[in-house]
Each structure stands twice: as C-alpha cells, then as structure tokens.
C-alpha cells in the first residue's frame, strides 16, 4: 500500500470505478490510483488473476486499465486529465472461457 506526501500542482479529479479521486496534474494515472490506496488494477487476460502495477516505467504492462472507454491502456505512461473515467481492466468475455 501507498500514501501521498504533500502534493504540488493543480488539483485534478478523476473517476475510478464510480469513485471520485483527487490528484494533481503531472501525475500518471497509475501513480494517482496507488496514491489513493487502490492496489487492484486488473484481471489477468488468461485466468482472471488479480494484478497490479509492477515496474512503473512502461516495461511490464501490468498496470493496464480501461481509460475513457479504451481498454488495456498503460496507466503508468498516461497523465491524469480532469474528469477522466477509469475502470479496472476486465478479462475479455469469451464463449469458451473455461477452456481458454
């Protein structure tokens, strides 16, 4: 888990799973979520395991989120914008999921 030190910058609010989170400009979406105490980012694509941020530098693709309706966005590389709507990345729905 993480906590925020006093933040500098212009206030920005974003929506995560229907919750309003306060953050500041210049932060990545991943950092804003972690700083607000959110750890669970997505379900893994194959078996739906819980996953979260791993590298924070654009390498691992573990921090994928649905941002403004677009799935699988690399949230450690995307800066927050006022009013962004963010959801956890769900595993895609396949008819034959049990066997996938």
């Amino acid at each position: 888990m993480f906590k925020k030190l006093p933040q500098n910058g212009e206030k920005v609010s974003i929506d995560f799973e229907g919750k309003r989170l306060e953050t500041v400009t210049g932060q990545t979406v991943a950092a804003a979520l972690l700083g607000s105490g959110e750890m669970l980012f997505r379900e893994s694509a194959v078996t739906g395991q819980p996953r979260s941020v791993y590298c924070m530098m654009g390498v691992c693709f573990e921090c994928l989120l649905e941002i403004d309706g677009k799935p699988n966005q690399q949230s450690c590389m995307i800066l927050v914008q006022e009013g962004m709507k963010i959801r956890r990345q769900q595993r895609p729905i396949m008819e034959n999921h049990a066997s996938a």
Binding site: N72, P92, I93, M94, E95
Partner: peptide
C-alpha cells in the same frame, strides 16, 4: 491484436 470479447465467430 489485443484480446477482446468474442465478436466474430
């Protein structure tokens, strides 16, 4: 592409 829900069987 990335995985997506079944659209085109």
């Amino acid at each position: 592409t990335e995985r997506t829900s079944k659209l085109f069987p």
